[in-house]
Amino acid sequence: MMKADRILIYRIITLAAIVLMLVYVVSLFRGEKESSAAFADVETAVMSAADLSTMQKAENRMIKRLYGLSAGDYEGLTLYYPTTNMGAEEIFLVKLADQSQKEAVLAAVNERLAGQKKAFDGYGVGQTELLNASVIDDRGNYILFVVNQDAAAIDAAFAGSL
């Protein structure tokens, strides 16, 4: 009787482990939660964490040129790019209209980052350092790309605002 109980207890624990693994796997698939935060609020939170003096807000035309993305396709899209042309500081914030856009946006961001790295490679040491420490944060329907001295703080503000 004792032994049968023990077998049962062990079996229950193993089944619990299986359930736990299933929950974990399902959670991997569910992906990140979409944030319902308004784009304007997130934008304010992100930009207030940054020193914007080295950047300027981009018109849609510039976003199209630097990232190849049309602002109209997204729920929200803001780009701050360097004022002095030899600067590398940049903040790019997107709220996706739907998940199918994510791949294209991430590709555009990576393309931009690679292009900037090449532009400053072997030439702009400070800029290269900033670019290497840049943050691409993909959180469900929001994506943030920061090249900045305070990238970590800006990213934290971003995460906090969702």
Partner: peptide, 20 residues
């Protein structure tokens, strides 16, 4: 901070936080 030989900024002590 900077290596003249390699012409690049050198990594510094990483920030320790829950996130990182």
């Amino acid at each position: 901070d900077f290596s003249d030989t390699e012409n690049r900024a050198m990594a510094q002590v990483p920030d320790l936080s829950r996130e990182s």
